[in-house]
Amino acid sequence: MKIKIFLTIFFISFNLNLGSNEPINESKIHKNLRCLVCQGQSIADSNSDFAITLKMVVKDLMKDGKSEDEIYDFLSEKYGDWILYNPKLNTGNLLLWGLPYLVLVFGGVIIVFLIRKQSKKT
């Protein structure tokens, strides 16, 4: 009983402590954009002219009140999907986003099957 009370208190306090919804984070957007003239770097990590220009573009778009996704849409239309480190969830990328979870479910089914087989025998 003690434990239960203890647990409830902790769960409540823990729920109260959840981080607030973060506002649009400029550096998060920078980290999600590939510096197209560099070798495997985001524009946040680069000082190339390209990165500097793109950072200014992002700033302007944010000033215009564009949301994070709208900024990504705008840039990927202009430069192609190659610029986004976080691949979009669309039909072309369905396999990419879906297959890992499919494997997870499939693996789980195999394990359950292995164990079931055993419990039927005994």
Binding site: K31, N32, R34, S42, G80, D81, W82, I83, L84, Y85, N86, P87, G92, N93, L95, L96, L99, P100
Partner: peptide, 22 residues
């Protein structure tokens, strides 16, 4: 999958995508 996927999309649909940390 994350490592190879960009190669496939590039080969199949000529659409180069990046799969990064996010």
């Amino acid at each position: 999958l994350g490592t190879l996927y960009p190669i496939f999309t590039d080969a199949i649909s000529n659409n180069k995508i990046s799969v990064g940390p996010p």
